[in-house]
């Protein structure tokens, strides 16, 4: 694999997205450096989840482009125009982007271990032993070494989400996307998931996190981005954006959630 180990991990330029007549993203520009942890904040409907999903092309971008590791993700540049990329190409490009969903989305018919080794074996064509070895190591790291033969339905939400993180890490991503990873969890289970994410951030992983956990954003994020009505209103160090925001809309939002 040709790894571009320098330069920003994400470079989004003028990203627009509409659902029908509803314009959800109205031109997003954002750069995420290697090892940077970015938290996307904002009210529901502000477009932050949609933007996150655009980064690995789960949503197609209507206008603008997103580069991940220097490569266009959902489009190709052909003779001076952007063309939608073939599905197989998109599939290949996003295999180095890990994604963690609000609803975990573990494969319910597979054990924890099978969930984690599926993509390495089927996408990277790794030998089973290699995939299993890494999976066991990753599950140990998220504190679930003893759960590899359980089925997702028998795990708590927090455990499921930690498995989901291990599953994404098994593809050795250069970027991890988190879409409200703790929003579906009972309050007492939030901490264990945030601990794993904190650990991941400390290990130098580039992360983009949509979250309502202001404490986490303050403590872990290098950059906090506040979005409202499809635009980035304000971005900067979290102590600035959360602690002393410039914009009225940021203040109004924080006043409600803090």
């Amino acid at each position: 694999m040709t790894d571009v180990a320098t330069g920003p991990v994400i470079r989004a330029h003028d990203v627009h997205k509409s659902f029908g007549s509803l314009e959800v993203l109205k031109g997003i520009d954002l750069t995420v450096e290697r090892g940077e942890v970015v938290c996307l904040l904002g009210a529901s409907g502000s477009g932050k989840s949609t933007f996150l999903r655009c980064v690995n092309h789960l949503e197609t971008v209507d206008r603008g482009f997103i580069l991940v590791d220097g490569r266009l993700i959902g489009s190709d540049l052909v003779r001076g125009r952007l063309h939608e990329a073939r599905p197989s190409v998109v599939t290949e490009r996003r295999s180095r982007i890990g994604m963690v969903f609000q609803q975990f989305n573990l494969f319910g018919h597979m054990t924890v271990l099978e969930n984690v080794i599926l993509a390495p074996m089927r996408v990277k064509k790794e030998a089973r032993e290699v995939a299993v070895e890494r999976a066991v190591r990753l599950l140990g790291r998220v504190g679930l070494g003893n759960k590899q033969d359980s089925y997702p339905a028998h795990l708590s939400g927090g455990q499921q989400q930690r498995v989901a993180i291990a599953r994404a890490l098994a593809m050795e991503p250069t970027l991890m996307l988190f879409d409200e990873p703790t929003s579906a969890l009972d309050p007492e289970l939030v901490g264990e998931v945030l601990d794993v994410m904190r650990y991941l951030a400390a290990s130098g992983m580039t992360m983009m996190v949509v979250t309502h956990e202001m404490g986490f954003a303050r403590q872990v994020a290098d950059t906090a981005v506040f979005m409202s009505e499809g635009r980035i209103v304000e971005q900067g160090p979290p102590e600035k954006v959360i602690g002393a925001p410039d914009h009225e809309r940021t203040r109004a939002f924080l006043g409600k959630v803090l």
């Binding site: 599939t91 295999s95 180095r96 989305n105 494969f107 018919h109 996408v123 989901a164 994404a168």
Partner: peptide, 25 residues
């Protein structure tokens, strides 16, 4: 739908998603 989205995000192609994730369920 989350099941095939998760498979997509892991880089599984359309056929692999159908065969290993969607059809068994």
């Amino acid at each position: 739908a989350g099941q095939s989205e998760a498979a997509d995000a892991l880089g599984l192609g359309r056929l692999a998603t159908l065969r290993f994730v969607v059809l068994p369920q």
